[in-house]
């Protein structure tokens, strides 16, 4: 590609970008290399094809890491405003830090959809159009309930993102799901640097299981953490006696469910979150349409040995 061609392309992009009728939608989310968030990103971009066909665009804004989640995400929301967004999608991970930034979006008259974290309460409080996502507490609850009903009644929730409201809700839900079904739940708290660091999570799980030999159920908050938790259980020599459910899934987790090393996965269907949040906003900016159904739930759904083959077929078809 010649330099002149690049310049022409850049100029064209600039012209297209400033067309007034098209929707430039900014989506604030997780790191693009996070398996779960790459699925959300794909959903947002697939919905964005419609926006692009109409001359609009979808831009993904993610933090460099999760060390400073709330403030970093708040910064990205403000950045989206500065970049001239026609509509913004964002998760309400840390309300104290992020609410003022969401307020600035609404004050600027930019349509807003909260997704992934925060629930309809956050959308109502902030004046957002809608909430698209799973209810974290219910997701955790489903995991606790599933394991306790299967007879594994002493559970621990592995929290690798202390402080993030949605993760706290997973663990609270898990503990309640356990105790409502005559079990007991506890939380294994790790420093946030452990999130995504499989070795650190596995070592912590191994040590925790050796110290607390009664634990026979565990809950992990993401697909990488779930694999790490299973590895920690193996290292503690407890495979088969400690049963694991985890949030989200990927190919290796589905294989683990098929082979029986993992009991269940709680699916919040990230693809749907990105897809519907962007679709709602694009249609709203283009045509003024709304979705009167408040709180678009995308989860929880339990994936276990009974339906895993169907889910795998769904993955192959690109639908999950």
């Amino acid at each position: 590609m010649k330099l002149s061609n690049i310049l022409v392309a850049a100029a064209t992009a600039a012209v297209v970008g400033t067309t007034s009728m098209a929707a430039d939608i900014f989506v604030v989310g997780g790191k693009p290399d996070d398996p779960f968030w790459s699925r959300v990103k794909k959903g947002a971009e697939d919905a964005g094809r419609v926006a692009e066909a109409q001359g609009g665009s979808v831009t993904w804004l993610g933090p460099q890491n999760y060390d400073n989640l709330g403030p970093d995400a708040a910064e990205l929301i403000r950045q989206a405003i500065d970049q001239g967004a026609d509509a913004i999608v964002g998760p309400n991970w840390v309300p104290e830090a992020m609410d003022p930034a969401f307020q600035a979006v609404v004050d600027a008259g930019i349509p807003l959809v909260i997704y992934n974290a925060g629930g309809i309460e956050a959308a109502d409080r902030l004046g957002a159009m809608n909430y698209v996502g799973a209810v974290d507490y219910k997701s955790g609850y489903a995991g606790g309930e599933y394991l306790a009903k299967a007879g594994h009644t002493n559970g621990a929730c592995v929290n690798t993102l202390p402080g993030a409201a949605n993760i706290e809700a997973f663990c609270n839900g898990f503990n309640d799901g356990m105790s409502d079904n005559s079990g007991t739940g506890s939380v294994l708290q790790l420093p946030a640097t452990a999130f995504g660091d499989s070795t650190a999570v596995a070592q912590a799980v191994r040590a925790h299981l050796l110290q607390n030999p009664d634990i026979n159920a565990m809950f992990a908050i993401g697909d990488q953490d779930t694999n790490a938790t299973i590895s920690g259980i193996q290292q503690a020599g407890k495979t088969g006696s400690v049963h694991v459910c985890g949030m989200n899934f990927n190919d290796s987790i589905l294989a683990n469910i098929q082979s029986g090393t993992q009991a269940c996965a709680i699916d919040q269907q990230g693809y749907q979150q990105g897809f519907f949040a962007v679709s709602i906003l694009n249609n709203h900016v283009m045509y003024g349409t709304t979705i009167p159904t408040r709180e678009i739930l995308t989860g929880p759904g339990v994936v276990d040995a009974s339906n895993v083959d169907l889910v795998i077929a769904g993955v192959e078809a690109g639908a999950r």
Partner: peptide, 16 residues
């Protein structure tokens, strides 16, 4: 300053 601006502090902010 960050804690005052963002109304909250968490243990591992700023490691990177």
């Amino acid at each position: 300053c960050h804690a005052i601006l963002f109304n909250s502090a968490q243990v591992s902010g700023g490691m990177n």
